[in-house]
Simulated assay, not measured.
Amino acid sequence: MTETHATVPPGAPVFPPGRYGRRREPGRRRPVLTTLLALAAVAALGLVSLRLYQQYGNPAYDAQVITYTEITDGQVVVDFRVTVPPGGSAVCLLRARDRDGAEVGRETVTVAAAQGEREIIARHRLATDSRPFIGEVVRCRPAG
């Protein structure tokens, strides 16, 4: 069968009959496969998001500095409050900075609430390399 200008759209190439074999029909679309791949990608992203939220974004652990006192050339005492799930414990990162904002002391402290309590009030003596200007709680996260 030869192609004529009546069966070929304008601008399409015309090949000699029988030389290149039969022309393929346009590819069949696979909407089911596309949908399954999209669902798998959404599920994978959802699992990654959940894992990262559990690791870094748990709002149940909230810390506030109450006061920092007893500032000397080698220490600062930080009083802080941590909110945890009832009876839970937390690991908090404390640091001290000098007047220029440079870090002069850093320590990780584990605090635990009494059974059924959600709030922990803790006091920690933080050793420093030089005279601190401020003591602060950087973050708290679940212990373990």
Rank of each mutant, 00 (worst) to 15 (best):
G46L: 10
V14M: 07
C92P: 00
L39W: 11
A122R: 08
R118M: 07
D129I: 04
P142F: 11
T2N: 14
T69V: 12
G46C: 06
C140K: 04
P26W: 01
I66A: 06
S49A: 15
A114Q: 14
A60S: 13
A102Y: 11
R95Y: 15
G74F: 11
T69I: 09
T35Y: 12
R97V: 15
R81W: 01
G135S: 02
A63T: 09
S89E: 14
E107W: 07
F15V: 10
P85C: 06
P17M: 03
F80D: 07
G88F: 05
A12P: 00
V8M: 06
L93M: 13
G46M: 07
T2R: 14
A127V: 13
P86H: 05
R51Y: 11
F15S: 05
V111S: 01
T69K: 13
L93Y: 09
A43L: 14
Q64Y: 10
G27T: 04
C92D: 04
R28G: 06
G144T: 04
E136A: 13
V8Q: 07
A63Q: 11
R29Q: 11
C140I: 00
R139F: 14
I66T: 10
T108P: 00
R125Q: 14
P31N: 01
R139C: 03
M1Q: 08
A102E: 14
E107S: 05
E70L: 00
D73F: 01
I120W: 08
I66G: 04
R22L: 14
V48M: 10
R139M: 08
A40W: 03
Y56Q: 05
A60H: 08
Y68W: 10
I71L: 09
E103S: 05
I66N: 09
Y61F: 14
T108R: 12
V91R: 15
A63K: 08
I134L: 12
D62Q: 15
R118E: 13
R106F: 03
L94E: 06
A63D: 09
R95S: 13
G27K: 08
V104S: 03
P10G: 07
A127F: 01
L50R: 13
G144H: 01
P26C: 03
T72G: 03
T67W: 00
D129K: 12
V42Q: 02
